[in-house]
Design a protein around this nucleic acid. Structure first.
Lengths: 139, 139, 139, 139
DNA sequence: TTTT
DNA sequence: TTTT
């Protein structure tokens, strides 16, 4: 029977997306997002913990991410968890967990202070969805 | 800026889907789903409350709902809330709130006792997504 | 077996919360939230549709809503769908669907232009959860 | 402003939960869950990919997980992503990503074939929530 | 590396 | 009745 693997994040981009164009014609944009948790320590002091998420946007979403996302923006990301394994330089198996984005929405328009111009014009679309891939079609 | 309107339901179908074919070529399947809440009343007794949800699946999803969903099945539905208004027979404005399905997954294969044959063959797809409509494309 | 009834909304408040104090000591805050959908009509024009959601926050969340939420703010609301029935003035049964809030987060600090002072100080908490009720405890 | 870090999984347990009792009185249950994706490869063949998720349930949820969860059961898990770093035996920094469970619901009652008796009696609660911790209280 |  |  079916399963569900869904992630919903709201946070700020830690850096501008980095886009790579792969052999075979695919492209992927990677960026990081911060979410914050707060708790009180044993002395009752407010403590903040930042969780950093690595997001990967493929194909059409990669291009939209490259065009519209900038460091510091507040975004909503919906996607799924994927853990890849690879061999490190010592030939040991390592794992990296990423969020594969399926939908990205802009929640704020404010770019990072070191980004020059306003990112998004007023009439710009603010929700982007991954076009359905073969692997999302019923079969 | 963007907004989000998302519903996630897991429950059992209250009846087989009813499909209507609209003028203009569109079709829509309607069914109901029950979710349950439990609480303790003031005497400490366990009380169960059933919430009934009306789900509408359009176009391609309507056909899949008609084909694969049966009363009693446990399903996962992801969608959005939509409230429509209409005039009742006394010409008063009334409102009805529905869940517009965007994804439906089968979590159990058990049909209602009054449904004759097994609903889903082993090799049947168990997750269905609405094909993207014009209103889901970035523009 | 268990069921799930979950709603996630991101949108702007249509009005300040209205708080009622019920006999029995309970309080409830009601407010509306807008979410927007876009689609292209048959002529290819961009059309916007606004969906209005009625949110109810009970007890502790009611007080936090009253204190921190204002018309125009962008908020994240997580909750569940509840449809109540009541008798209208002609003694006919009517239904109203609400979102019972379980978590509310402030995504923007900007109050409506007609709200006088800044709503939230820098050090203000920005995520509020409903304290667990009897009906949320395992039993 | 606030952020959101939410994960929703539906899948089957890969093994019985393993519970550790930590110094300081805390306990944690770890288990794995599988979710499946399907896609068609370039030859048009149906391919299945299994994603394995590591779930950690703390304190009260750990005890409930130990008592009610078994290999093979279908569960709904709601939680948040957490990546921890640690030093491996070669003193290199490594990362591991887990889902910290906040709610667990039983969707099926079927234990793994190698588990002896039925896991859950008919009247057993089937939804478990983490009791709110200090770090979940508004402050 | 974000944000308040 | 919100927002861009």
């Amino acid at each position: 029977m079916a399963s569900v693997n869904k992630v919903i994040l709201i946070g700020h981009l830690g850096k501008d997306p980095e886009v790579r164009h792969l052999e075979g014609g695919n492209s992927v944009a990677n960026f990081t997002m911060a979410t914050n948790e707060y708790y009180k320590d044993k002395q009752g002091n407010r403590v903040e913990r930042t969780e950093w998420h690595t997001v990967a946007a493929w194909r059409g979403l990669a291009e939209l991410a490259e065009k519209y996302l900038r460091k510091g923006q507040q975004v909503y990301v919906e996607g799924r968890i994927r853990t890849r394994q690879y061999q490190d330089k010592d030939n040991q198996t390592r794992y990296v967990t990423e969020i594969i984005a399926e939908e990205i929405s802009l929640l704020s328009n404010r770019p990072a202070t070191d980004s020059a111009q306003p990112v998004v014009a007023a009439e710009t679309p603010t929700t982007f969805r991954q076009e359905p891939e073969l692997d999302q079609l019923p079969f």
